[in-house]
């Protein structure tokens, strides 16, 4: 499981030629810590990290909102054609991204959002995956509490906000986490939606070490390893919410 990462880190510290040695080197003989500085200054990675962070944060906030509300409606509210409409929503997940790329780009371009954060974020605000997840989650949560609130005459939005949403923290944490990761790892959309070098994201930066004819393995791996760090921190942080979820639902 860890071998590929071991290889990544090890390679990121190797001299360019050492990568190719046979039999393969497990560890760099002389760790080249300079690779990290070299890779991260070869392109403006400071700016790229900021861009990725803004992009991913915007996407997370948008997806949390839309997934929670829509997921709640699909799971807890009765309305005409619910299942059919859900299948319609789900079907938008089945469209290959490469197809919607062009119309989406032309759209944000017409709106004057080309090369801006707004343009970058706007297309990613809804995750059908997230809606589906919330639907499943809300369905598996017992409805006693909501029914109690309903009997008290609370409005549906109030029930959603004060009763159901707090119960959904594990699912929300999951969606937030994956929304962040997806945005962070997205390569094609930021590439297409941005023009200037200052608007690129980390993933685009990593890919740019992979030239048409010439590759720089250690630099690319150094950049890739660095890019993992923020998400792993986020992951360890959201861990607590999964644990909290256990306590919340387990009290009955």
């Amino acid at each position: 499981m860890l071998v590929p990462f071991f290889w990544m880190v090890s390679t990121s510290l190797m001299d360019e030629l050492e990568v190719y040695r046979f039999p393969p080197r497990v560890l760099p003989t002389d760790p080249q810590w300079g690779n990290y500085a070299g890779a991260l200054t070869a392109r403006p990675f400071g700016r790229y990290f900021l861009n990725s962070l803004v992009f991913a944060t915007g996407v997370v906030l948008g997806q949390l909102l839309t997934a929670a509300t829509a997921g709640y409606a699909f799971a807890k509210l009765a309305f005409r054609g619910r299942e059919r409409i859900f299948l319609l929503v789900l079907s938008t997940m089945m469209v290959p991204t490469v197809v919607v790329l062009i119309p989406r780009f032309l759209l944000i371009d017409r709106l004057g959002w080309g090369d801006t954060y707004v343009g970058l974020i706007s297309t990613e605000l809804v995750s059908v995956w997230g809606i589906f997840l919330m639907r499943q989650y809300f369905r598996s949560v017992p409805r006693e509490l909501e029914d109690a609130a309903r009997i008290d005459g609370a409005s549906e939005w109030r029930i959603f906000w004060t009763v159901s949403l707090p119960l959904a923290k594990p699912a929300l944490a999951t969606i937030g986490l994956f929304a962040f990761i997806d945005a962070w790892k997205n390569l094609l959309w930021p590439l297409i939606a941005t023009r200037s070098m200052a608007m690129r994201t980390v993933e685009v930066g990593i890919a740019s070490f992979h030239g048409v004819y010439v590759m720089n393995w250690p630099y690319q791996m150094a950049a890739a390893v660095t890019a993992i760090v923020p998400i792993m921190i986020l992951f360890v942080f959201t861990q607590r919410y999964f644990v909290q979820g256990i306590q919340l639902t387990g009290f009955k």
Partner: peptide, 22 residues
């Protein structure tokens, strides 16, 4: 003068830029 370097997917980027009129 701004330099826009696109290492991967250069063709896509160029074609999209032309198609979008920019």
């Amino acid at each position: 003068v701004t330099v826009e370097s696109i290492v991967t997917n250069y063709g896509e980027k160029l074609v999209t830029a032309i198609a979008s009129g920019l």
